[in-house]
Amino acid sequence: MTKDIKIKINGVEHRASVEPRLLLVHFLREVAGLTGTHIGCETSLCGACTVMLEGRAVKSCTVLAVQADGASVTTVEGLAQSGALHPVQEGFWEEHGLQCGYCTPGMIMAAADLLEHSPAAAAGATPGDLEIREGLGGNICRCTGYQNIVAAVRSAARKMNRRKKAVAA
């Protein structure tokens, strides 16, 4: 059996008839052709497949596409706005927060969620290193040893706070 579904990905609606067992990550990669979202494990642990579903970070390997029917999804390809990189993307680049790059899209999405929802970030403060490290507990990187990833998120947090303040002023 197949089911007709529609998912809005990075602002663009994608309709397809899918088997209910189709994983969201495969919908993104195979139906929408957005291969920036990667697959790194089978057990919902590595976080390489992290995307935003209705604004919250989820592991798209552990969501059925049919569960996301009617929902909106943001992938790494949709993070940059109006031609400018997201501050988290800039942070990863400037702080050398990536090497092989495979975990990076998921790591960036998880970091974006962290900076959107962490209590410190919500209060206009920079999350502490421990909060950042724990906030990225659902993502595994084998290359960087995490130190520069933490620096990247810290740098992005500062940048986002500066921008918020600038907008407020």
């Binding site: 919902s44 976080g47 992290t50 579903l53 919250r56 970070a57 989820v58 592991k59 552990t62 969501v63 998880a110 969620d113 962290l114 906030g135 507990g137 659902g138 993502n139």
Partner: peptide, 9 residues
């Protein structure tokens, strides 16, 4: 429980 992504779902 788990991690942020797991807790979100």
């Amino acid at each position: 429980i788990g991690d942020v992504q797991v807790r979100n779902r």
